[in-house]
């Protein structure tokens, strides 16, 4: 079993593990962000370049550093590899650059976007982005299109992570959607606005890291942080029926799959569970769902407020001190 050191933490991992998976085994701050990698989808990853890391020692056998930063999601670890993520300032600078590239053509319409609150791009730009854009030109725009009667595609928001294409390739039969054109005008689309009509096509909504693919049965119903996530299940012939319900009072506003710490689905759910079962009586509710990560959703509902209060008082003190210093 190869041993790899990531940010000075050593871990032994099975053969064939990628750097990103190894970092996730360690957990915490050393995990690089990943916008396009999805562990449940084969050949995903490598496109967005946010997960780049610096390899300062290739392996025990060949200790040369790798000349360029590598995509951690697609690079397998070697025995004796030494990786830097948060500890390399030049790498963080490079990652900030990638985030800036992802944002220059993103409309930043978070106030009207259904994904806001559970958007990976929001988290990413909060952690690595600039406060102000240096891009001063017109942003790329596309028309919104309906792909099928349940899914809305808003290509303007897309960051071309290819996850939905992989879903279409690997989960659905009779694939009708993919990438058209090339360069910065390439777009995810169906062939001449064909509809995506498949029992598992709804999963592309869940894998979309931004608000490009949204659930038409939920669009503009509520901000996600006003809804309460509940674990629930039902007997379903197509999928295992384990879902998260997003409720407001006794109303089921939205059904999604259950997402883990890294925003990845625990299991794929079918379109019937996702779009058609919107009554509480359809489901056996297990209890409130804990939302991991630093999401606004979990801040509202589940995190201890004491933590927040401490932070507020600390900031107050700092502000007062600064005020006095200025005097």
């Amino acid at each position: 079993m190869p041993k790899v050191t990531i940010d000075n933490i050593e871990i032994e991992v099975p053969d064939g593990t990628t750097i990103l998976q190894a970092a996730r085994m360690i957990g915490g701050d050393v995990v690089p962000p990943a916008m396009c990698y999805y562990s449940k989808l084969e050949t995903s990853g490598g496109y967005c370049r946010t997960c780049i890391v610096k390899v300062t020692q290739g392996s025990a056998k060949d200790p040369r550093p790798m000349p360029k930063p590598v995509a951690s999601c697609r690079t397998p670890v070697m025995d004796g590899m030494v990786v830097q993520n948060r500890t390399a300032p030049d790498l963080l600078e490079a990652r900030n650059g990638v985030v800036e590239f992802l944002l220059i053509n993103h409309p930043l319409d978070c106030p009207i976007c259904d994904q806001a609150g559970e958007c990976h791009l929001q988290d990413l730009s909060y952690e690595n982005g600039l406060a102000k854009s240096r891009y001063e030109f017109k942003r790329r725009e596309f028309d919104k299109i309906d792909i099928g009667d349940k899914i809305k595609l808003h290509m303007t928001r897309c960051i071309l992570c290819y996850r939905c294409v992989k879903v279409a390739n690997q989960l659905c039969d009779g694939r009708v959607h993919g990438v058209l054109n090339r360069g910065d005008v390439s777009e995810i689309s169906t062939y001449i606005q064909n509809s995506v009509d498949n029992d598992f096509s709804g999963n592309m909504i869940d894998v979309c890291p931004v608000g490009a693919l949204t659930d038409k049965t939920f669009r503009f119903k509520s901000r996600v942080w006003f809804t309460k996530p509940m674990d629930a299940h039902r007997d379903c012939k197509k999928c295992d029926g384990k879902v998260a319900l997003w409720m407001s009072n006794n109303e089921v506003l939205r059904v999604t799959g259950r997402k883990d710490t890294y925003g990845e689905l625990e299991s794929w759910i079918c379109n019937e569970c996702r779009f058609d079962k919107k009554e509480v009586s359809d489901w056996k509710i297990e209890g409130p769902r804990k939302i991991d990560r630093h999401s606004v959703i979990s801040q509202n509902h589940y995190e201890s407020l004491r933590q927040l209060k401490i932070d507020v008082s600390k900031q107050k003190n700092i502000a007062e001190k600064a005020h006095q210093d200025n005097k």
């Binding site: 990638v98 590239f101 030109f137 290819y162 090339r182 360069g183 910065d184 390439s186």
Partner: peptide
Amino acid sequence: YHHESCGQCSPCREGTGWMEK
């Protein structure tokens, strides 16, 4: 290069267009 970028990875897809502009 902007015209010929394949659009797969973000730095090249977005950066070439930005430089051209």
